[in-house]
Design a binder for these strands. Structure first.
Lengths: 185, 185
DNA sequence: CACTTTGTTAAATTTTTTCTTAACAAATTA
DNA sequence: TAATTTGTTAAGAAAAAATTTAACAAAGTG
């Protein structure tokens, strides 16, 4: 039989894990996921791999909820499906390297922001250019169109920068400028 | 009287603005704000300055809603209060430089993520260290504690990197590595 | 200092989101 | 191929969030 010291130690380990699981789950709202998905990822962080039945056991929610949560986590790159042959159950594993989850999530997010807004800016600029280049339009109106055109043109600098940032994170180039370091400071 | 060409031009300008307002409002969910706050910021983006009454006029929502929205936008650095003397009304202006809104929002967010998780990691590591350094505990349990300790220690590299990233954005250093550029590409 | 205007907050309502129940589809096994 | 297991999806229930109404507080004005 296990000594009472060992039992206490196991409890300490669970306490330590729960501490981290709690904050990860809490901060997962930053990644736009539901509480269920947040708790699931935080739980999986300490597990090698899990299938749906283990998830509902550990997290204490329904299978449907785990199914949708795990798919959401896959979409943002926090969880990967493992292809295990000879088993009906699907197994998943959490991405435990936070640099990878960071990259996956923010690059996706920034790409969405940049492309959506650039699309809108292009459409708007085309309309404004028509006005600016039409000699028969009143000067006052043209001036307004020019002002907005200049604003939108300026905003493109930002969206292109956002894409460059995403690219340099994806390629890992950014770590030449901002290295991953072990030391505190 | 204004010519019909000029009227059409004004409409074109409104169309162009609405195109951009629409997508900004739509992508504002990335910044964790309510639809009301999103629409408000998008509207303010094309205005020099606004007071609450102008906001509810333009956005078409209640004064209470504008009041809470504008405060939320202030918190994340998207809107600033202007101190106008000699008027009872509060006036606000939108931050129109997206580099500044980016900086303000993400630095705040990343600081929250880093500090919350580092706190939890420190607490957890202290517990785990007790087990690792206790000679009377079973090896199997110690091994587990060591495994988790190593994971958590590794995760600190990420959180420190996140803070460095935030710092280099705040100081503007990052633009030496990733310059703001005017050209497409 | 009473009066008016402006902005905030709390309570109630509406809307949206999240989660569960339950029916269904897909895949595996016997 | 029938039976069983597993995972998904749609519909409904529960919970949470956003917005409005309305009461209140704060600040400026006459």
């Amino acid at each position: 039989m296990e000594s009472s010291k060992d039992k206490a130690a196991r409890e300490k380990i669970e306490f330590a894990k729960d501490q981290v699981i709690g904050t990860i789950a809490e901060t997962m709202d930053l990644y736009g996921v539901t509480p269920a998905a947040g708790r699931l990822y935080a739980t999986m962080y300490f597990e090698d791999k899990m299938n749906l039945d283990e998830m509902l056991e550990e997290v204490g929610m329904t299978k449907a909820s785990m199914s949708t949560s795990v798919r959401k986590l896959q979409n943002i790159g926090f969880v990967k499906r493992l292809f295990t042959r000879g088993s009906r159950k699907h197994t998943y594993t959490a991405e435990k390297n936070f640099f990878n989850t960071f990259m996956s999530f923010y690059c996706q997010q920034w790409e969405r922001e940049a492309s959506m807004n650039l699309d809108a800016v292009h459409i708007a600029e085309k309309e404004l250019a028509k006005i600016i280049n039409d000699p028969s339009i009143a000067e006052e109106i043209k001036a307004e169109a020019e002002e907005y055109y200049e604003m939108l043109n300026e905003s493109k600098v930002y969206y292109h920068w956002l894409r460059k940032l995403a690219a340099s994170i994806r390629t890992g180039e950014i770590f030449e400028f901002l290295p991953k370091e072990n030391d505190e400071s």
